[in-house]
Each structure stands twice: as C-alpha cells, then as structure tokens.
Amino acid sequence: MSATTSQHDLFEALDASAFAFTRRAWVDAAPARVYDLVSDVSAIGRWSPDATDVRFDQGAGPRVGAWFSGRNRRDGREWATRSQVVRADHGSVFAFVVGGAEDGIVRWNWTFHPQGRGTVVEQSWRLLRLDPVLGSTRGDLDALRDHMTNSVEATLISLAQWITED
C-alpha cells in the first residue's frame, strides 16, 4: 500500500456492495415474539453456528446505544467481539454494529415482517470498512462473506425450527 492509498480507498475500489447480503425465512410466530427472541442477544447461541456466550453489558438491554460482548468461532479460531445496538424498533427492526456505531466493521440487521400467521425474518450482513482482522485480500473477504452467508442461513433455519418446537 502506498503512502497515498489507504485501506478505505482499497475498500472503495473493491465495491462494498459485494460484501453484503440478506437472507430470509418464514417463522411460525408473530413479529413481536421473534423480535423478543432475537433482541435477547444471550439467546443467539441457540441458533448461530458461530456465536456463543453473548451478553449485554450489566444494566443494558435491547435499546439503541447498548453494548454487548460475545465470542465467535470460525475455522478453528475463537475471538471476542464488542457490539453496539444501533436500531431497536420493537417488533420490526433490531440492528447492531460490531465494533460500535462510530467505528464498526460489520453491521447486522434483523427485520420482521408479518406474513399470514407468522413472520418473514430477514437477517442482513454488511461489511462497513476493512480491518486486518477480517483478512487482507479480496479472496479473504470473499471467503468471509461466503462463510457468513452460510452461517446466516443456518441461523435462520435453526431459529425457525426452535420456534416450531418451542
């Protein structure tokens, strides 16, 4: 990288839209119920193949500005994350940014749309900026996006099954 080229410039050249996706699933529960399940971040380990031990900071909860911590696993590695809630509209949207609203690296967005007797749940992932922890090449970022796509699909399937069995 030259003195005149920043990681931000490289990211822009990569086209950030290539590092975002949304997946959907219908679940047999009302939007408010699904929102309550998803916004209770301590429950994410029930559905996510990657996230464990997620907890809001003491006294925090699913509201804008709240912080939580969690552990993630991928490719035999494990690491801790800090995330901040950036949107919390009960029954319709729950979103957070890994690394915080001001300088985060990934945004997770959940939306809940009523359909029939249930809800269409959308889970979106968007890379906000480059960070060495995510990889240093286009191939690294493509692999990360592909892994996260598979993880989200597994999470949505597990969430739908859990709701059906509960």
Rank of each mutant, 00 (worst) to 15 (best):
S6N: 08
S6I: 05
H8T: 14
H8R: 15
H8Q: 15
A13G: 04
A13F: 00
A16R: 12
S17T: 14
A18S: 09
A18K: 14
A20F: 02
T22Y: 02
R24G: 02
A25C: 12
W26F: 11
D28C: 13
A30P: 08
Y35F: 14
S39W: 03
D40A: 15
V41N: 14
S42R: 13
I44F: 11
G45Q: 12
R46M: 02
W47E: 12
S48N: 11
P49H: 02
A51T: 09
T52C: 03
D53Q: 12
F56M: 03
D57L: 10
D57R: 10
D57I: 05
G59Q: 09
G61T: 06
P62Q: 05
R63I: 06
G65L: 02
G65I: 00
A66W: 07
S69R: 09
S69C: 01
S69V: 04
G70T: 11
N72M: 13
N72K: 04
N72Y: 03
D75C: 09
D75P: 06
G76M: 01
G76T: 01
R77M: 06
T81R: 10
V86D: 01
A88D: 07
D89G: 00
H90M: 09
G91N: 05
F94K: 08
V97W: 05
G100D: 03
A101R: 15
E102G: 14
G104A: 09
W110D: 07
W110V: 06
F112N: 10
H113E: 15
H113F: 09
G118F: 07
T119N: 08
V120A: 06
V121C: 09
V121W: 14
Q123C: 07
L127Q: 15
L128E: 00
L128I: 04
L128A: 01
R129I: 01
R129Q: 05
D131K: 01
G135Q: 06
S136P: 06
T137Y: 04
R138H: 02
G139Y: 07
L141P: 09
D142F: 07
R145F: 00
T149H: 12
V152R: 03
A154C: 02
I157S: 09
I157E: 10
L159W: 12
A160I: 06
Q161K: 15
W162N: 15
I163L: 13
E165I: 04
